[in-house]
Amino acid sequence: MTRYLSSQLLSLRGQRGLKVNRGQDLPAQQRGSVLIMALISLLILMLAGVALISSTNTSLLTAGNLAFKRDLANQTERAVTAVRAQFVSGALLSQTTLYTDQSSQNYWAHALPSTNAKLPGIPDVLLASTKADDITDAATGIRLRYVIDRMCISGTVPDKSICTMGSFVDDKKGTAGVTKVSAGLGPVYRLTIMALGPRNTQTFTQITFTH
């Protein structure tokens, strides 16, 4: 009986020792797995951080370029004001003057050619490297160039056969069922403005009007 109990005790001690040994091995294996997972997580977080910084820089650069272009578009009002003054009380006031080219005033009595496939509709004269800046702002680094051309094919005295003619409909006249009055406003003129700014920013603006 005593021998039997002793063998059972030895068996239990052996089992307990085995469990203790196994218990000591498991934490070592778990610590290795946790380390690998931690490194993978850190790598993922690092990549995400780099992507976020790159995206932020790109967004800031895009926003800055859009702000420059918007400012340039607003600056073109200077050229519009200058051209309006020429037609209202300046060198381009007389109709007979408008029958011929006035290069000193950036005016051409015929439609200017445009051959640049990347900038369709923009006159070649405006894109020429020899075209001088008409308005310069040294403080902001903004430069404006512009040309005015009459939408005519040829000839001096404008008419419908050679020119694009402007008109308007007077909606204050006439009664119900009667065609409203349409008045002719003469040939159409086109103002093309190229604005140059910092960071090689460039915008084009075109306006048509009658005189």
Rank of each mutant, 00 (worst) to 15 (best):
S161E: 04
V80W: 06
I40A: 10
Y107N: 00
E77Y: 10
M37C: 11
S182E: 15
V147H: 01
I53L: 09
P198I: 04
N106W: 02
L10S: 10
V188K: 05
G49T: 05
I122C: 02
V147C: 01
F87H: 03
F209C: 06
T62C: 01
I135G: 01
R145K: 15
A82G: 07
S33V: 14
Y146N: 01
R16P: 00
V125N: 02
N21L: 15
V20D: 15
S33H: 13
I153E: 14
L93H: 14
L43I: 10
I44K: 07
G17H: 11
K160T: 09
L127Y: 00
N57C: 05
T56W: 06
K118E: 14
L10K: 12
M46K: 04
I153S: 14
T96P: 06
A28G: 09
F209P: 01
L5V: 11
V147F: 00
T58M: 13
A51T: 06
G174A: 10
F68T: 11
V125E: 09
L98S: 03
R16T: 14
L191G: 00
T164R: 08
A28P: 01
I36N: 07
T179Q: 11
N57D: 09
D133K: 04
Q29E: 13
D159R: 03
Y4E: 09
I148M: 03
V80M: 12
T192I: 01
V147K: 00
L92P: 00
G32R: 14
T2A: 13
A67L: 12
A109Q: 05
R190W: 01
Y107L: 00
A82H: 13
L185W: 06
W108R: 11
L42G: 08
C163E: 00
